[in-house]
Amino acid sequence: MKKLRLLRAAVSAAACLLVAAGTVSAAEKVVLEGSTTVLPIAQKTAEVFMDKNSDIDISVRGGGSGVGIASLLDGSCDIADSSRAMKDTEYEKAAAKKKDPKPCVVAMDGIAIVVNNSNNIAALTKKQVKDIYTGAISDWSAVGGPAGKIVVVSRDSSSGTYEAFGELVLKGAKVRPDALMQASNQAIASIVAKTPSGIGYVGLGYITDSVKALEIDGVMPDKGTVLSGKYPVSRPLFMYTNGSPKGAVKKYIDFVTGPEGQRIVDEEGFVALK
């Protein structure tokens, strides 16, 4: 008897919850979709933004830059996150669908190539870095250093930094399978700091005195060279909207590019615009 009553209570409680969930007030909805690189920025800014604007409901999906742009042109999302500029073919499609995608740069993404402080190499070309990571070069003597096997350190293949590095430097080629795959920027920095023959790549925020950042194609990585786009392992991150942003979309984009949004950009390991 007792058990029955308990069960009934549980069922009615569950029913109440269901009803409550169904009747959440109809807030203005903004849908973001696209690049997994931009995802942490989008998610964090959306969370903070919604705390302040309870009348706007933002949902964020990944999927990749191409997917996001396709959805924007289909009208199934309001903002497309993208880690690259739209291609000409995509602009043609947009014109055919009478859409007018407008880019907005929300952050810069820069990756520093780091080596051990004892390494006498101070600069490499992008091509050399690519060869080291794909396995075409495996000894420091091939790039002007002392003879010794290069210990290649990389991020795990599912990380956003890995993805960006793969696009900007490797151009889709595979990292040699015997590279040390590490779960965080911090782990890469500390391994390179302790391994005389190591090489790794980290977000700009992780350059410290314990590792040496390399000049790539003659440019040192820092906020200035990343912002100006001179540093070759850097790229802008976009949010595309259909036409100039207005209403809730404009409010959100203004938030992301404003001081608070840019502080989040910085916290997430990207380069803020100001």
């Binding site: 997994t36 999927g63 795990d156 599912s158 040390l180």
Partner: peptide, 19 residues
């Protein structure tokens, strides 16, 4: 003396970011 990737560490390292 080769670096290796045991099954447990592959799961732990990749699960967080696998869609």
């Amino acid at each position: 003396f080769d670096p290796v990737r045991p099954m447990t560490s592959a799961i732990a390292a990749e699960m967080g970011e696998a869609p």
